[in-house]
Design a protein around this nucleic acid. Structure first.
Lengths: 253, 253
DNA sequence: CGAGAATTTGAAACCCATCAATGACGGTGG
DNA sequence: CCACCGTCATTGATGGGTTTCAAATTCTCG
């Protein structure tokens, strides 16, 4: 049950062109194509929470973290954003949360006003925006179940499976994944502490489910076992490609 | 920071016509107007997780809970849906989660295909769908912060404030609120157990912040104190109307 | 009024957080 | 080249907030 949405969420940023072909006239990517490429060093902010939402960003390479802060400094990372995704559209005139480069990030930036102009003219663009909003919604709801009801081990296992799925292409499942974010980032994404994330990683390693060549790289030695540790339905968990397309076809508005 | 989104989330279901005037030609409500009214008794399912998403629902009265289940029965309630909201559009060909009547619920139902037809013809309708998707996204992200980083007391206080805000109109803040859902529903919404919800309610009562004339009715004796207990920025927390409109104006796509 | 359900309250256990220290890594400069 | 240092990750010990198990109380409704 949860798997359908998970897979969609996994597909969301990694391969958006499959759902919304970039060859389509006046797609989001086409609008961006003319813009210069900018680079953000690790931990640099693309924009801050509550800052005027002047621009829309397309992620070309690298990973971005989106976060929200409480008054006392507690942080929730609402998502990690991978190449192919767009930032800054899904929200209000002020950015609803901050965005920071996890590693070196290359982006294209478009003035918000320009996007709005184009959206008025091109219905296909609005359809694409809607599709992307719906995908983000699906990802957020996955996360609600994870944060509300999963144990620490299930959360970490889910995160690893999700990241592997994002790194996968077609039917092949990536068994080695990059973890450019620090443990504290993962913790704020999973609603845990960095120590707990580290401990669970060590436990998964001890159980033979994963290996950690470096702290920023994980090898999934037993994907099926890891998938079983997520608490989700395990069936078809490692063959996401099929159900992905189902859902894409299903959102026609 | 969190307050902006909270307020939007609060406004989302309660007063959608303010953002998307129902007088507009071919709005979502207009499409629904011709459909007969159906009634669901408490705890009856409007639809199940993974069932074919044949219909779209408009909630006329009552409260609906949206939930997702894990294989072993653990449940997360992703949102409570109030009159004025629409169900079944934001998702795929199969409903991504179940919907059940909390109390007696009256709805209008529209075949999905009919909505899609109309969406092709009316750009205003697509704009409305997008606006609603974005609002749902904002609400979901509020909940991510709550589930990931708030204490039990902060969660319950947030829930009470959120519910009061939904029951409010214009600048007036509702001090007495209905809680038609059971403690277990609230627990699954807040990522707690029903016992913890009950205990915190009792504590808030003992602290003089609320009163509970019946278990299904709460009086906010000290809204400011309760708001302070949410962990959010307290300023302007009780005057949601202003910022609401700001955000509405800000989402023009 | 009585029966069943929902809520409240209590006691104990547990998972995870907190506090603290050690270890590993990478870059820098001597 | 290697010692140094800061940052991050890991591991350990302890404590606390929440869960779990259980019972009592209240509420609802026929």
């Amino acid at each position: 049950m949860a798997t359908i949405m998970s897979q969609v969420a996994g597909a969301r940023s990694a391969r958006p062109t499959m759902r919304v072909p970039s060859e389509a006239p006046c797609g989001l990517s086409d609008l961006m194509a003319g813009q210069p490429v900018e680079t953000f060093e690790p931990n640099r902010a693309l924009f801050w929470e509550n800052a005027p939402a002047d621009h829309v960003f397309e992620i070309l390479s690298g990973v971005v973290r989106l976060y929200r802060l409480m008054a006392d400094g507690r942080r929730a990372i609402t998502s990690f954003v991978y190449p192919g995704a767009f930032l800054g559209m899904s929200f209000a005139e002020a950015y609803a949360f901050g965005a920071e480069a996890v590693d070196t990030v290359r982006v294209r930036r478009l003035p918000r006003a320009r996007l709005l102009e184009s959206a008025d003219k091109a219905p296909a663009l609005r359809r694409e925006l809607l599709a992307r909003a719906v995908d983000e919604l699906a990802a957020a709801q996955d996360q609600l179940l994870l944060l509300g009801r999963k144990t620490a081990e299930e959360r970490v296992a889910s995160f690893l499976i999700q990241t592997a799925r994002r790194a996968s292409s077609h039917g092949t499942f990536a068994k080695e994944i990059a973890l450019p974010m620090m443990r504290g980032d993962i913790a704020d994404y999973l609603g845990l502490t960095l120590e707990t994330v580290s401990r669970i990683m060590s436990k998964l390693k001890a159980d033979g489910l994963i290996a950690l060549p470096t702290p920023n790289r994980a090898v999934l030695r037993d994907p099926a076992g890891l998938s079983a540790a997520t608490g989700d339905d395990t069936d078809a968990d490692l063959t996401p490609a099929v159900r992905r397309t189902v859902r894409q076809a299903a959102w026609p508005i």
